[in-house]
Amino acid sequence: MQYEELYIRYSRQLKLPELGLAGQEKLQQASVLIVGVGGLGCPAAQYLAAAGVGRIGLLDGDQVEASNLHRQVLFLEDDLGRNKAEAAQEHLSRQNSHIKIEAYPEHLSASNAMNYFQAFDIVMDGTDSFTSKYLINDAALKSGKPWVYASIYKYEGQLSVFNYQNGPSLRCLFSNPPWKEIRCEITGVLGVLPGIMGVKQAAEVLKIILGLGKVSAGKLKLYHLLDDEVQELRISRNAEQIKRVMDKPLEEEKMHCEFAHTHFTYLDVREPEEMPKGLAPHILTIPLSELRNRQKEIPFDRDIYVFCQSGKRSREAIHLLQKEFGFRNLIQVEGGIFALQNGR
């Protein structure tokens, strides 16, 4: 870009004395990988591209769906069915043709994460699953990259910068993902919330690149949309958690993902008094003692993952349902709820 063109284009941020031409040069030299180009990733990508971040990688294996449009405002109706990373690349390149925008139309995995992370300075989390967030965390630790985390639940958002200047990681906050996955597709979300959180993430990315202000490392910001309140909790680095990641090969938290996946159906055969409250709608609860009378409630047409407390009764339940009612679609969750909760 010609100096004059650059000067005009970025004039409003160049005027900030903390930024100036030196700051713009830092932005031009910087590279950011956005993992997940959805509710969080879209607004972040838009502001980072507009600010002149020199190289932006967009990683997403999903297609634009009609139900995305209310919050992923970068996408147009014409984009339905297109890969998100590719559609976003096209729009962003038209917003700023002077920066490099790379589309990677695939999902983050344990086998590709290290290659991607090593090729960028900063990673921004725009994902919506525990599996992805923990994979980002572990790959960021192993590749020594800071990453900007955000998560939303209904009207609440969490934000932090992890692995920044020897700060804490996601596992220092939550050592393991929970056994229950909650997603927008079940809980619902107002489009502005990921918009706000994604823009906050972009602000953290810019602060890291420019060395401006206080980066939100070592603290978790909790935002509540309905009363516009932000609270802050301090997180300390847990050396043991970090060592645990460094000592083992990179792997995905698979069991949780499978268990939590809303496309799967589960059957909980524990007795009512030991069942946890608030289970998701895709988990059927029929105690072993009532199984014979209520077997008609169990679908035949899809795989059902059967679990109990330890794995003993689910085996019994499957045996009973197969022998007496001819079920052929039952899969036992080895080790029961304990295994699910501990990620084994």
Partner: peptide
């Protein structure tokens, strides 16, 4: 404060 993890995005 009681804080559960969540992963929406």
């Amino acid at each position: 404060a009681l804080l559960p993890p969540f992963a929406g995005g």
